[in-house]
């Protein structure tokens, strides 16, 4: 893959993630998606990078803000949208909703609404890969808030003790709901340095620079698959919309004045487009068919989700046990 191809694929991947989330935000007021949604708009670069570096046989888990990670791992779009609509065709049969997505065939093993909850599950996937002798990686998406949970330290410690093939991908978007890092962690705290001190091979990345994200993720995955032990990547990034829901909430003033705007000026899609323009790309003619293809895919997914039936009521009582 040439640099040029890589950049165009990253751009296409980010556009897809952005447009899916924008479509969810646009449809949300219709009151048909009756569950909480946590959108990734502004944070697409790590997921786009991941989608190009990860292999289908690798495994992954994520969080409440997991749409982008699910799609990046190869999770099917239609079943994800249907799941958010609570339909029988949803990836979790309507039992999970936006915060509980999985596509086992794609190696996407689940997301959790409880902060930090999926971390040890991801480490357990890594343990299984190691015991089974499979040269793959288990990828654990977390946010900055999860690094305040005890289970993060417990899990990272075990991953280091056993030299497990685990990659922690931490999207540090600086806020846990409305709470800034400044009230949660001491000034000057570096999540990367903490991870290093735990024994994780740790790298800090500009999380809005998709190319930098790709090289970091690719290297970390190769290290983990090759027996190099657990890896930690900290992506500095920012969420543009509210913590939960489809709206802008900057008027609530929980963020520093101008903070959102400065991050929007470093929007990961705009940054990559600007770079591509420098290399004289005829971007508009190249991007337009990509956008159209994605639009069609999204429209189909929403139309099918809307048309699909709700699960039978009896489905509620089934399958408590396997």
């Amino acid at each position: 893959m040439t640099d040029d191809q890589l950049e165009m694929r990253l751009l296409g991947a980010m556009l897809r993630l952005r447009m899916v989330e924008e479509a969810i935000a646009a449809h949300y007021p219709e009151q048909e998606m009756r569950c909480p949604v946590h959108l990734s708009i502004g944070q697409e670069a790590p997921s786009a990078a991941f989608s190009l570096a990860v292999q289908r046989e690798d495994l992954a888990v994520s969080t409440h803000r997991g749409h982008a990670h699910y799609l990046a791992k190869g999770g099917a779009l239609g079943p994800m949208i249907a799941e958010i609509y609570g339909k029988s065709t949803g990836c979790s049969k309507g039992r999970g909703g936006s915060m509980h997505l999985a596509d086992k065939d794609a190696g996407f093993m689940g997301t959790s609404a409880i902060v930090g909850n999926s971390i040890p599950v991801g480490v357990g996937l890594g343990l299984a890969l190691q015991i089974q002798g499979r040269a793959q990686a288990s990828c654990v998406f977390i946010g900055d808030g999860a690094t305040e949970e005890g289970v993060y330290y417990e899990s990272a410690n075990f991953a280091v003790v056993k030299n497990l093939p685990v990659v922690f991908l931490c999207e540090n978007n600086r806020y846990s709901v409305y709470s800034p890092l400044s009230v949660r962690q001491p000034e000057g705290r570096s999540l990367t340095r903490v991870a290093t001190s735990l024994g994780l091979t740790s790298v800090e990345v500009d999380g809005n620079d998709a190319i930098a994200c790709y090289h970091a993720v690719d290297r970390a995955l190769q290290q983990a698959r090759g027996g190099g032990g657990p890896q930690f990547l900290e992506f500095h990034t920012f969420r543009h919309l509210e913590h939960c829901g489809p709206n802008d909430d900057d008027h609530l003033d929980y963020r520093q004045p101008g903070e959102l705007q400065s991050w929007q000026q470093r929007d990961p899609i705009d940054l990559l487009q600007a770079k591509l323009l420098l290399t004289n790309h005829d971007l508009s003619s190249e991007i337009q068919p990509i956008r159209e293809r994605i639009s069609n895919e999204i429209e189909t997914a929403f139309a099918e989700a809307a048309a699909a039936p709700f699960p039978d009521l009896e489905e509620c009582m089934r399958d408590v046990y396997a």
Binding site: P120, L125, L127, A128, I131, F158
Partner: peptide, 26 residues
């Protein structure tokens, strides 16, 4: 020792590790 092992004093994480290992086939 790969199938039978002592563990860190981390009851919560190790239960999650068991869940992860279980859904991956152990």
């Amino acid at each position: 020792p790969s199938r039978v092992f002592d563990m860190p004093t981390s009851e919560n994480a190790m239960t999650g590790v068991a869940v992860g290992a279980a859904i991956a086939g152990l």
